[in-house]
Simulated assay, not measured.
Amino acid sequence: MSDMQSKDISYEVVHYHTELPFKILNVHKKDLYPNKDLSAVSDVLDHWHNELEIVYSYSDDGEYFTDGIAHPLKKGLFIIVNTRSIHKVISNRTTPYDKLPPTLTTVLQISDSFLRNYIPNFDELYFIPVFKPGEERPAEIMKDLAQYADGKPLTKYENMRLLGLVHELLYFICKDDLSLKDTELPEKSRKNADILRKIISYTEENYDGAINEMSVAETFGYSASYFSRFFKSNMGITYKEFLTRMRVNAAKDSLVQTQKSVLEIAMDCGFSDSRGLINMFNKLEGITPLQYRKKYAETV
């Protein structure tokens, strides 16, 4: 989820904890309501990401907003958040804490590049936000996936089982819930989303090199000032912040998956030296790269 304290629309870089092209997480009431105080809830404010987000609700508490439209949460309801759709979650703060289930929702975030492998015209399509399956199987799949939430270590061959469950869930949603994007979204929103997708893809392919806001603006034929305003207004963060987050996330993967030194990882991820990576890691994660490597290694 996004930075819950942010008042701006922010871009979320989803970090996958396994080699699978999706992330599963459960939202628990004990985490959402500190000290059982309904007035102290941390709502998930406006944010967006490249991933398709599938939300399954276990309660009637709160509203899911997608592209400015409110969808009241209901037990057994699916909310589909399209790639690059701005969304947020607001609690209704009326259901007594003791009446809420331990887990409020299960969230599945699926890589857009993975989806494009199976849906050739993916960028022309739009999932209807409120999905009401006519059968029980999709709910059963989400409850099954919930058991593997939050980066839980997988035993031998479980990755194949999880991949099969996600494929089956996507089958149900795609056959019943897809519409043409140009019938659902205004033209300006579609054009901005397409431009941003190209900028993000370019950054993903080149973050390890000597790129910056000015060079990327030039690549796409924009002045530096226009590119800066366009990116910030649509993403909620500057291009420099976005690029730094992407580089730090790449460093996370390398810290866990390799034994490379911090300097080697810094150079591989586009930082000019190890100090740059350490400073940004401390700022964004609150710990050093080596502390992150040690902490994550102890949880897998």
Rank of each mutant, 00 (worst) to 15 (best):
L115G: 00
V44R: 10
K188T: 08
M4T: 00
S254P: 04
H167K: 12
N206S: 12
Y126L: 08
R190V: 12
Y33S: 03
N26D: 07
V166E: 02
K175Q: 13
K252R: 08
D98Y: 07
I79G: 00
G164C: 03
F22D: 11
M1T: 11
S274N: 10
Y33F: 14
V130Y: 02
K156P: 13
N279G: 13
L255A: 03
D8R: 08
Y64Q: 08
V81A: 03
F172E: 09
T66R: 00
S261L: 01
H15A: 05
L77T: 02
R137M: 09
D182I: 01
E51V: 13
P101Q: 01
L115I: 10
D67L: 10
F122I: 12
I195T: 08
V89Q: 01
D3K: 04
S261V: 05
E168D: 14
F281V: 00
E187H: 03
L169C: 02
N212A: 08
Y157M: 13
Y118H: 15
T95I: 14
L52W: 11
K143T: 07
P72R: 02
R161E: 09
T155K: 15
L125S: 10
N159R: 11
Y207W: 12
A217M: 15
S272T: 03
K75W: 00
Y16C: 03
N82L: 00
P186W: 08
S201M: 14
D123C: 07
I141V: 12
T83L: 05
F114P: 07
Y296I: 15
